[in-house]
Amino acid sequence: MRAIEVARFGGPEVLVPTDLPDPVPGPGEVLLAVTASDVMFVDIMVRSGLGKDVFPIRPPYVPGNGVGGRVVSVGDGVEDGWLGRQVIAHTGGPGGWGGYAERAVAAADELVMVPDGVDPLDAVAALHDGPTALRVVELARVRPGQWVLVLGAAGAMGILLVQLLRARGARVVGAARGDAKLDAVAAVGADAVVDYSRSRWTNQVLEATSAARVDVVLDGVGGTLGREAYWLVADGGHFSAHGTPSGSFAQIDPDDARERAVTVTGIGDLRISAPERTRLARGLLAGLGRQVRPVIGQAFPLAEAAKAHAAMENREAIAKTVLTVG
């Protein structure tokens, strides 16, 4: 099979197309003929070596922790009824591996069937970001009429967050960088959009809310921007520090948060068990296209995985990035 292999940690250039033997499903597993692979920032973190203290993955390895495709064989203990089904599934363990390939192995009990009428690419695009976005909104306890600021709103999860929040009746300010990204955020229903690459961007947020501080900040960026956004949260509000594209999570002073009764949640609060993740993904796919729909900003052929990573690292990608296979 054709696959992408990382022989050493480094930049996008270490993502090299190669030929490898087809994997074989073990007990409780299935083999998928992959049609699309999810591309995530965690893939970049692992590939660059920045995640080596967090994830157990070491070169050589095949990147990727999520795919969509058709079940072509099953391991011991798996019902033959899965054969021929179009599904999405996670691959590998923490950090993920094995997804950038024409064939991938996945656990049968974590398969999510793609419903009739759902575009398989949309299903892959919702595999990771959908359940996480649902969890973020759930933790924030967003209520109708509340103002919510979403940082990184043009990212794959940010786009879903805007839609989920609007479906709950919240008023949303979407913050992103550049006109193209702002247009994408406005197109999915944000009440206002703000370019955080401009000076005094926080004043633009307050202008959108008629000078009211926001009830909730969902920070998908981190770093300095996240810290600046924290000061926009009203007393008694909620701040979710779950993003690191800037290189670090937003560091919030716990004493100030306690004094202002601001609830701060982080990436650790977003951990979801495999069964819960699968349940959320199944529910999301069942309603895909009604309240929410992923936006695929760019799709690259499998052999161009390096270009996909470069586009994301250079902040050129809008919404979801996927690799198409076959």
Rank of each mutant, 00 (worst) to 15 (best):
E5S: 07
G92V: 08
G68P: 02
Q86I: 11
R103S: 06
P115Q: 11
R260F: 11
D22T: 12
L280G: 05
G247E: 07
P254L: 12
D215M: 13
G326R: 15
S246L: 03
S197Q: 13
P25I: 03
V325A: 12
M157C: 13
I4G: 01
I267P: 03
P59F: 02
A89W: 00
R213V: 00
G77E: 02
K307A: 15
A36K: 04
Q204G: 13
A211D: 15
A310D: 12
T244W: 15
Q298R: 15
R168G: 08
E313R: 13
V137C: 04
L284E: 10
D76Q: 11
A234H: 11
A234C: 01
H309D: 04
D53L: 08
A186Q: 14
A305T: 06
T324I: 14
G96P: 03
S246F: 03
V112Q: 07
R8A: 13
W201A: 06
V162K: 00
S210T: 08
H242E: 08
A89H: 01
T18N: 01
Y196R: 08
E102M: 02
E207K: 15
R290W: 15
H90Y: 14
L139S: 10
G289Y: 07
G247R: 09
Y61M: 04
V105N: 06
L164Q: 10
A104W: 09
R258N: 09
S273I: 03
V148N: 03
Q86F: 01
L127V: 01
G26Q: 00
K52P: 06
L32V: 08
A176L: 08
V193Y: 05
A306Y: 02
G155P: 04
G174R: 11
F300V: 10
D119Q: 10
R227F: 00
P254A: 12
R290P: 06
A303M: 05
D119M: 10
P120Q: 10
G28H: 10
A317E: 09
G220T: 04
P56A: 11
A175W: 13
D38P: 04
D76W: 00
V72E: 10
P131K: 06
R213M: 07
P23N: 09
R85K: 15
S273Y: 01
L83A: 14
A281T: 13
G92T: 04
T209L: 12
L121N: 12
A107E: 13
E102A: 07
A36G: 08
D43S: 09
L121R: 14
V194W: 09
R177I: 04
A125W: 00
G237M: 09
W147G: 04
D22I: 05
A140F: 13
T202I: 09
R135A: 10
G178H: 02
G77I: 05
A250Y: 00
A184T: 08
T278Y: 05
L182P: 00
G145Q: 07
G68A: 05
V150K: 06
A170P: 03
L127R: 01
D22N: 02
G266S: 12
D253T: 04
R198Y: 00
A286Y: 12
A187F: 05
P63Q: 02
F300T: 11
V74F: 02
E276M: 14
L206R: 15
R85C: 13
L127Q: 07
T91P: 07
L232T: 02
R198L: 14
V205H: 11
P23E: 08
D53W: 00
V78C: 11
R200N: 14
D80M: 06
R227E: 12
P17S: 13
F300E: 06
